[in-house]
Design a binder for these strands. Structure first.
Length: 790
DNA sequence: GCAAGCCCAGATAGT
DNA sequence: CTGGGCTTGC
């Protein structure tokens, strides 16, 4: 078992007593250490598997860890291995009654939570202009992950706004409790609450877990740290594994402080490091090391490898997202044709889910099989959520959110007014809506009128029947019954025939999921099924079988590895993301994200960078990511050429990126790839020159053609002739300085539309950013272009 | 009670 | 361009 471990790994495995922090670089074999350590505890130390607790970042990671341990030690599956959330649920299902929750409390996902926040905002008369559900929700989540309860939030509030949010927080929690529901964060919050309020319970669990292991420790938050401490308090054997260079979830409340101050939180802790990388080639590692070296806030380490240099990274210059998709597809086809890689070896990573669409289209058009992780998730489809809401309601009749979702879906003539009367009556009686219906039907009739009451009571009766059924039947049977009694499929076709077929397929997939669950689990109980659904992460649904390319966000790729990695959209405002440009901490997190992306790769890395990207329908200029400039020049070769983003093609002047003399842009050394001016790319010394010579041929059309055809279409509709059109086009370009009569001087950031519809986004000094119609703006050109990036 | 149509805001990342 | 929320008219 211990064979083949390097000395550091070996020590990390066998040095089991007391707290330990393992700083494990990307690809340094930490998963192996974790699994071997668990196996070692069981086999060599005689620890009972049930006394081991391991936290992973995703269910998929948990499953893999369990399988790997099981392979080393058959019968080890009694160990508690799971995400923080899953472990929280596991404890809460046994103990929730102490907190005043029934065992079968509902778990609300983001959309359910949003519904609750919305109703809270409405009830407290919040001004929708000042408080969006989104913001409030994220504020609440931040509080929770920082372990701040509503009353503390109220006390800490420094402004009227914060006070209001604390009030919303309080009502939100009250509402969840009324619904006997917990949101995602609560799964940990309530577990901590339980352990803190009931010392005997804490003692019981802390005694039980002789060894506690935590993976991806750099992405844990203060609340999770409290949970770790509480559960390891008795034996104090905490083994935390993490890499500060891969901390990418600070927006979820995670803090590297947990790692940096480990020795304070766990006195007597030892710290070990794994710096030898077994995953990537020399070139890839060199690139990754160099990039992450630009971060200041880090513990600092340097990965090394004895692997061969391999192939240099390739930088693909493309015109726009379609060109990018095409380039990605062609490279994959090439790799597959060479026989060196399969499609399933390839992953395409991107910063935002919105980028997946163009990539997806490109792959589909080329007939290249792919799977997408994340984005519009299966369990977020309306039809799937409707049916799940029925099931949740069956399990937990107090769940108002689910009730309101389905009481009139399919339509049964229970409209807003009747529903409101019903809700009011129930609230007045201090009962949940369904209890009201079941226990006091006459009052429902009084409140809603006879006709409406009849329909409502019919619905309530249906849920009661389903609930009875769920006592003895498994999840799949109950789901079938829901579909049957609600005639859900019929309604799909009635509601929107055009989408009905696709939705029906989704419904059947849900049914399949339920069947699969029933087949796998002991009892196939409905509420266990709902729980497994609620806790699923996107990556958990990743297909291991089937030869297809995988598409996902960089965040989702954490902890995974692939022979071939594509990093799409290596552009300013995307990577680093626009929202992270102005704070150093955020910028460094973006860099870590890029680092994570690079270090997923075993053998090949392709980076793509477009000159133009479409957003909200309009065209926007894209600049090469500053991170590209941080790559050492001799580990990258370029493909295609960096074509100027000629947003105004007809005007004939120099395009934004055609420079008469190589003028250096800020922050970009001349030797780096990003600084090279347009022109045929050259293979570099270490690369394969022949490839570098290839042009970026094969685009469906250049930016120019695309924009002009679009312009012509518009012009035809508006009685412009082409001459006039060109005149209009000629007037403005991105980067141009202009003066506005009242707004002052500014720089054009984006040009959208053509002719009389030309819209300009201009950043003014004082007035900020404005989006205006060029024809009314009466702009005056000012000499000299602004130096981009803005 | 309900459907059609209009308007506006919007999309960083996810257990 | 898209989706959700609101208004309007039947």
């Amino acid at each position: 078992m211990l064979e083949g471990l390097n000395p550091q790994q070996h020590r990390a495995v066998v040095d089991t007593e007391g707290p330990m922090l393992l700083i494990a670089g990307a690809g340094s074999g930490k998963t192996r250490v974790l699994t071997t350590r668990i196996a070692h505890l069981i086999v060599d130390k005689g620890v009972h598997p049930g006394n081991i607790l391991a936290f992973t970042f995703t269910n998929k990671a948990a499953r893999e860890m369990r399988e790997r341990v099981e392979r080393l030690v058959p019968g080890a599956s009694d160990a508690w291995i799971g995400t923080f959330h899953a472990t929280g649920v596991r404890i809460l299902r046994r103990e929730a009654e102490r907190l005043g929750y029934p065992r079968q409390f509902s778990i609300y996902d983001a959309e359910d939570s949003r519904a609750v926040v919305k109703s809270v905002l409405k009830a407290l008369n919040a001004d929708p202009k000042q408080f969006s559900p989104r913001e409030v929700l994220s504020a609440i989540s931040r509080y929770k992950n920082a372990s701040v309860d509503p009353s503390e939030a109220r006390e800490q509030a420094l402004s009227w706004r914060e006070e209001r949010i604390a009030d919303f927080y309080q009502d939100y929690q009250r509402s969840l409790r009324d619904n006997q529901a917990m949101d995602f964060d609560d799964l940990i919050v309530k577990t901590v609450e339980l352990l803190e309020s009931f010392p005997e319970v804490q003692e019981r669990y802390a005694r039980r877990f002789q060894y506690v292991l935590v993976d991806e420790f750099q992405d844990t938050n203060p609340l999770q740290l409290i949970l770790i401490k509480a559960l390891s308090a008795h034996w104090r054997n905490v083994f935390a594994v993490g890499d500060d260079d891969q901390a990418i979830y600070s927006w979820r409340g995670a803090t590297v402080e947990n790692m940096l101050n480990f020795e304070d939180y766990f006195p007597g802790a030892r710290v070990l490091r794994l710096e030898r990388n077994y995953r990537s080639t020399g070139f890839i590692l060199q690139a990754a090391n160099e990039v992450i070296g630009h971060n200041r806030r880090r513990r600092g380490k340097k990965l090394w490898t004895e692997a061969e240099q391999g192939e240099p990274l390739e930088l693909l210059w493309v015109d726009d997202e379609e060109g990018e998709a095409l380039a990605v597809r062609e490279r994959i086809e090439e790799l597959v044709a060479d026989g060196e890689f399969r499609r399933r070896d390839c992953v395409v990573l991107y910063r935002t889910n919105a980028q997946s669409r163009a990539l997806e289209d490109g792959l589909r058009r080329g007939g290249l099989p792919y799977q997408i992780i994340g984005g519009t998730r299966f369990y977020e489809r309306r039809e799937v959520r409707d049916l799940l809401a029925y099931l949740k309601l069956v399990v937990n009749p107090a769940d108002q959110v689910s009730l309101e979702r389905v009481i009139n879906v399919p339509r049964r003539g229970i409209g807003k007014t009747s529903l409101q009367r019903l809700l009011d009556a129930a609230a007045a009686a201090g009962l949940s809506t369904l209890e009201m219906c079941w226990q006091r039907p006459t009052e429902v009739e009084r409140a809603c009128g006879r006709a409406a009451a009849r329909r409502i009571l019919l619905f309530a009766g249906m849920i009661a029947e389903l609930a009875a059924l769920s006592e003895k039947e498994n999840a799949a049977r109950v789901l079938e019954k829901v579909m049957e009694t609600s005639a859900y499929l019929d309604w799909l076709y009635k509601d929107d025939p055009s989408s009905a077929q696709e939705r029906e397929e989704n419904v059947h997939e849900l049914l399949n999921a339920a069947e699969a669950f029933v087949a796998e689990s002991d009892e196939g109980r409905l509420f266990d099924f709902l729980e497994s659904v609620a806790l699923l992460a996107d990556v958990d649904r990743m297909e291991a079988d089937g030869d297809m390319v995988t598409l996902m966000t960089m965040h989702n790729a954490k902890g995974l590895e692939f022979p071939v990695v594509f990093v799409a959209g290596c552009e300013e405002n995307l990577l680093p993301h626009a929202n992270s440009l102005h704070e150093d901490d955020k910028l460094e997190e973006e860099r870590r994200l890029f680092y994570v992306a690079l270090t997923r790769a075993q053998r090949r890395v392709f980076l793509s960078c477009a000159s133009m990207r479409r957003r909200f329908g309009g065209a926007e200029l894209a600049l090469p990511s500053r991170f590209l400039a941080e790559l050492p020049a001799d580990v990258v070769v370029e493909r295609g050429e960096r074509r100027p983003a000629v947003v105004q093609p007809a005007w004939g002047g120099r395009g934004l990126w055609e420079e008469e003399s190589p003028r250096r842009r800020p922050g970009r050394p001349a030797s780096s790839p990003g600084a090279r001016s347009a022109g045929p790319a050259r293979g570099k010394r270490s690369g394969s020159p022949a490839r570098g010579e290839e042009s970026g041929a094969g685009h469906l059309y250049g930016v120019e053609t695309f924009l002009r055809s679009k312009a012509r279409k518009k012009a035809e509709g508006h009685g412009f002739d082409e001459h006039e059109l060109n005149q209009e086009e000629a007037r403005f370009h991105v980067g141009q300085r202009v003066r506005h009569a009242t707004l002052g001087e500014g720089v054009i950031e984006a040009v959208e539309g053509f002719g009389e519809l030309t819209r300009l986004t201009i950043r003014f000094g004082e007035a900020g950013r404005k989006r205006i119609l060029a024809r009314y703006a009466r702009l005056e050109a000012v000499e000299g272009d602004s130096d981009l990036p803005f």
